[in-house]
Structure formats: structure tokens, C-alpha cells
């Protein structure tokens, strides 16, 4: 069941078409990954969803109703460029952001304290924001997106600038929220996170949605006759082999597509016979990174692998 829908939205800034007729839908209780390179149009799309930019055309609906202030009050939004009032205290900040979403009172205060404890910030409750480290500020900002108990979470570049431990805490909270039936949409260019967490994805490039759907079906569609290979040695002899449809080098791994299912075993044999040291051989599998690079082209430098 689709509850959050983006329908044919476009946005231009002067001559630049930042988002070009993008559509996708986010089902309830799922984690949705909006994937794209830097400048692909992720943030512009998200800003249009939040009513910060007005789309040139198209609309965003939630449960059938056009987005607007009412929708915004049900959303927890973490923008890519974080910002807090530097002179305000931590708890004060959290309560203010909850209040502009229409939530205040003792219950919110208690919840805020609980979250601060969870993120190991309980003792910084009355510190000024400017006295916190960048990572801690980011945690405070993340809490502020959750405090009003939103139905939808929109998180732009969620994991940027976090250490592994806090990344883990956040991941767990997001999975917890998914269990509670919330809709979670995050944008990232880090494929390994998306691969582990997302149920649905959309890949956006140059403002256009290239691929969109459930991660499982996208993978199933593309993994037929595909082998994800990690190896040491020389595989150039495969280049003109009749069983190979094509070879894509993704840096860390190589994706090899064979012409027929039965060729998979032959390929493995060929590799072993030619003294190639096989580290990983995933048949009928494809990594999200491979899908992503196929979709957006080969300029892979900007795609990080964390």
C-alpha cells in the first residue's frame, strides 16, 4: 500500500533542470532509499516533499492528501546541511523543535531525556549547542526529528559525519521505527548502507528516476546469470570467451554476465583452470553498487564504499 507518493514532480533553477518528472512511492512500514550521486537531485526532491521548494509541476501526496503544513507536522526531517541554534541549550532546542510541530508538555520532556540517555548525552542536557562536538550536535538534531513521534521520517544523508558506533545506534533506532510501522525515507550515496537497510529504492541521476521499486525485485531482475566476483590474478582471457555476455569492473568486484544459466559452472571451472584465485563467487547475485553504477553510468569516482 503506497502512502507517500511523489507524482511527476519537476523543478528547474534557471536553465538547470534539477528534478525532471520524478515519480516514486513509499509504502508504509518500509525503509526507502533515494540513491544518487552528489548533485543528482536528491536534496531538491526531498525539499519539494517538505514543501520547502514548490515543484514547477507535479505533486506530493500523503495518504491521498496533497502535502503541506499538516503533512509537515507528521514528518521528522533531517536536512543534509544540519543546523541548530548555537546559543540554545540541548534540551531547550529539542523542546522548541517539538513545539513547532505541535507537541509539548511533560511527556515530550521525558521522551527527550530518554533519547538523550540513549545517545549518551544525558549529562549534556543543559549544555549549549555550540559547546558540543559536531557528532553530538548531529545526534541532537537526529533526536529532534524523532521527538514529536512523526509518522514519516525523511533523512537527507543520514549517516554523513558519524562514527561507526553512533551509526549503529541510529541504524537500530531506524529499524525499531520501521517495526512501529513508520515510513522512513533516506537519501544517501553510500550503497552499502542502502543495501543493508532499504526495502525499496529509487535511483536518481541528472534529475531523472532511473530505477525504482523494491530492492528484492530489482535485484532478482538483474541477478539472473550474473556473477559477482572477487578475485586475484588475471581474467583478461575471459574477454573473448563465447559464454560471456559482458564484464563490468566495479573496482572492488567484477560483475560478469553469462549467456545461459549453465555457463555459471563453466565459468567457475575456467577461473580455477586458469589459476585465478577466487575469493568470492556469488552466482545469481548482484550488489546494489553494481546496479547503481549500471544505472548512472561509469563515472564511479564519486560513489564511496564505506
Amino acid at each position: 500500500m503506497a502512502t507517500l507518493e511523489v507524482k511527476n514532480i519537476s523543478k528547474s533553477f534557471g536553465k538547470l533542470k534539477a528534478v525532471d518528472n520524478a515519480s516514486f512511492s513509499v509504502p508504509k512500514g518500509s525503509i526507502f532509499g533515494l540513491l544518487g550521486r552528489n548533485g543528482a537531485g536528491k536534496t531538491t526532491t526531498i525539499r519539494m516533499m517538505m514543501d520547502i521548494y514548490l515543484p514547477d509541476s507535479g505533486e506530493v501526496t500523503y495518504q491521498g492528501i496533497k502535502s503541506g503544513p499538516d503533512f509537515n507536522s507528521k514528518v521528522g526531517y533531517l536536512p543534509e546541511e544540519r543546523g541548530l541554534y548555537k546559543k540554545m541549550k540541548v534540551l531547550e532546542t529539542l523542546l522548541f523543535f517539538a513545539e513547532i510541530k505541535g507537541k509539548k508538555g511533560r511527556a515530550v520532556t521525558k521522551l527527550a531525556k530518554d533519547y538523550l540517555a540513549k545517545f549518551d548525552l544525558a549529562d549534556r542536557m543543559n549544555s549549549k549547542i555550540e559547546d558540543l562536538s559536531k557528532g553530538n550536535q548531529q545526534k541532537v538534531q537526529f533526536i529532534s526529528t524523532l521527538l514529536h513521534d512523526p509518522e514519516v521520517l525523511i533523512l537527507d544523508e543520514l549517516f554523513s559525519g558519524l562514527d561507526p558506533i553512533n551509526t549503529n545506534i541510529m541504524k537500530n533506532i531506524i529499524l525499531e521505527l520501521k517495526e512501529q510501522g513508520k515510513i522512513i525515507l533516506f537519501s544517501t550515496h553510500v550503497m552499502s548502507f542502502a543495501e543493508k537497510m532499504c526495502d525499496h529504492i529509487a535511483i536518481i541521476d541528472h534529475g531523472k528516476i532511473k530505477i525504482n521499486g523494491s530492492l528484492a525485485s530489482i535485484k532478482a531482475e538483474r541477478s539472473q546469470r550474473n556473477i559477482s566476483l572477487n578475485y586475484e590474478g588475471d581474467i583478461s582471457f575471459l574477454r573473448n570467451n563465447p559464454i560471456i555476455e559482458n564484464i563490468s569492473d566495479y573496482g572492488n568486484s567484477v560483475g560478469i554476465k553469462v549467456k545461459e544459466d549453465k555457463h555459471i559452472q563453466q565459468l567457475l571451472k575456467l577461473l580455477v583452470d586458469n589459476n585465478v584465485e577466487v575469493k568470492k563467487f556469488d552466482a545469481n547475485d548482484i550488489s546494489l553498487e553494481e546496479i547503481f553504477i549500471d544505472a548512472v553510468g561509469t563515472e564511479a569516482e564519486e560513489v564511496k564504499n564505506v
Partner: peptide, 9 residues
């Protein structure tokens, strides 16, 4: 950049 957070509310 606080303004973006504010504008989401």
C-alpha cells in the same frame, strides 16, 4: 542552515 529545519515545520 537552521532555516531548512525550521521550514520543514
Amino acid at each position: 542552515r537552521i532555516v531548512e529545519v525550521l521550514l520543514s515545520s
